[in-house]
Nucleic acid binder design. Structure first.
Lengths: 201, 201
DNA sequence: GGCGAATCGATCCCGCTATATCGATAAAAG
DNA sequence: CTTTTATCGATATAGCGGGATCGATTCGCC
């Protein structure tokens, strides 16, 4: 199983498979087939096979893939066993919610610290530092992942600072733009809700 | 300007344009051109024209688009002109963050009230009611949109109650199942962050 | 009024992704 | 042992989105 370039879209779906598989009952040698996964997740059957082929490559006809093995392979490909540290800037309600959510670790991301322009007490376990320690902290800890949960007008400047200290993947809840070479997942909660609205009858 | 199917990717960028345009100074007849927008947002110039064409269709050569008119057209396309009420259940950190976020109104959704199983003070403007008033409130206000921000184990029962009172579109941050005829947008923040991580080098 | 510059909208092309199809294979059934 | 069936992996096809190009149009300037 050598490095073939995994399509971006596929890369985006792999965590979904992993998440689904983990919720499946697994006996010792339980197997699961692509059609089943496809039906559960509402994806095309062929699509699933193609995606999984990037991670596994050994499914058996008539039975599918060994669940436990497939999970392991997905975790390997996604690096879930090698957690990476992330920082979060903007510890308002949303920021705190993310900071204290413990579900990220199961996908190999550890939000190591939060930052805020004003000192704020944190009810949870993660430390919250003032913003002036941001750059030094990121460099010392070799941070590559940044999360932006500040109000819109401050987002871009935070984003720029992140890029400056070497962060290469950003998850932002406010609109920002990044230079080439930096990955950006733009979350738009308002738009999501707007989409929900269009289906309300 | 009649119905053409707007590509999903485009739909994702439209709020970005709207947001940007709203931050622009607008005199009476100020205009803005696609190349300018493209430069500001870091998008291809042609891309911008194509996207805007779905909403507007009347830009003038050498000047561009009338800013105010373009904003209005984008708002129209995004449905911001016909606000609809929604309810939110689960006023933890995430729930409160959404409840007090004022960006939803600009896209045509008004979260009218929050609900919680235990009485909780709200720092913001929106009321938070105990859960036993949920059904009556929804029926009295003809609510069609529900937001679920409760912990995973309680989500399904909340979801069922929503369906029961006539809610037809649900935005959930915990995994739930809905019957046919009810639209569900399943949000999974852990998955999103996992996706971000796969791009961090 | 005519010329040049800038921008729009339309068309074309390319690459990527999704879907459909097909042969191969392994388990199950008879 | 043979047949049937479900599933895999590979290949072919189609559709969509992104980028480039081009003629058309309008404003500024002479």
């Amino acid at each position: 199983m050598e490095r073939k370039t995994v399509p971006k879209q596929t890369l985006g779906r792999l965590p979904m498979y992993l998440n689904f598989l983990r919720t499946q009952p697994q006996g010792e040698n339980d197997c699961i087939s692509a059609p089943v996964i496809a039906r559960e997740l509402g994806i095309g059957e062929v699509q699933v096979r193609k995606d999984l082929h990037y991670a596994s490559g050994d499914g058996r006809p008539r039975v599918g893939y060994q669940t436990a093995q497939l999970i392991a392979q997905l975790e390997e490909l996604l690096g879930a066993k090698h957690p990476q540290k992330a920082v979060l800037v903007g510890t308002g309600k949303l920021g705190k919610a993310l900071l204290n959510y413990d579900g990220f670790l199961t996908f190999g991301v550890d939000i190591a610290a939060g930052f805020n322009d004003r000192p704020i007490a944190n009810a949870g376990q993660k430390p919250i530092y003032p913003l002036d320690r941001f750059a030094s902290y990121c460099k010392e800890n070799d941070i590559r992942i940044g999360i932006i949960t500040v109000p819109g007008d401050a987002a871009q400047s935070i984003c720029d600072r992140m890029v400056e200290v070497g962060i290469t993947a950003i998850w932002s809840f406010s609109p920002v733009k990044v230079p080439d070479g930096v990955f950006l997942l733009q979350e738009n909660l308002a738009l999501s809700l707007a989409r929900v609205k269009t289906f309300a009858r």
